[in-house]
């Protein structure tokens, strides 16, 4: 197990322990795979560090997340049902991508 800063979390890493709110409610369960949504939620709830399972693939995950290709594929996936020629959608895709990169 290793404690990792939320800002350093990588997509695909696995939670070692349940993430609990002050109320005792479980926000995320142990063994869940980290996604962009997990990272955003952890930041929104003010978590600074979480325990993740150490794996040999962490380096590969890091490289994957850092590439523009990874971000583009997420954007392309979530917008796959949209009209890609619509100027409003083109702008939203741009905002969506930059929003994820700054998260």
């Amino acid at each position: 197990m290793s404690a990792v800063k939320v800002s350093d979390l990588k997509v695909g890493q696995e939670l070692e322990l349940d993430i609990k709110l002050n109320s005792g409610a479980v926000l995320f369960k142990a063994a869940e795979k980290i996604s962009f949504k997990h990272i955003k939620a952890l930041k929104a709830w003010g978590f600074t560090e979480v325990a993740v399972v150490e794996t040999q693939s962490d380096t590969r995950v890091e490289n994957f997340q850092d590439s523009d290709l990874a971000s583009d594929s997420t954007t392309e996936h979530i917008f796959s049902k949209s009209n890609h020629e619509d100027p409003a959608i083109i702008e939203l895709k741009r905002i969506s991508l930059s929003f994820r990169k700054t998260e």
Binding site: F36, K37, K40, H77, I78, F79, S80, K81, S82, L92, K93, I95, S96, F99, R100
Partner: peptide, 13 residues
């Protein structure tokens, strides 16, 4: 959906 604020069950925008 575009900003992925929360999750309603739909993956797509």
């Amino acid at each position: 959906h575009a900003c992925q604020l929360g999750f309603s069950g739909n993956e797509f925008v």
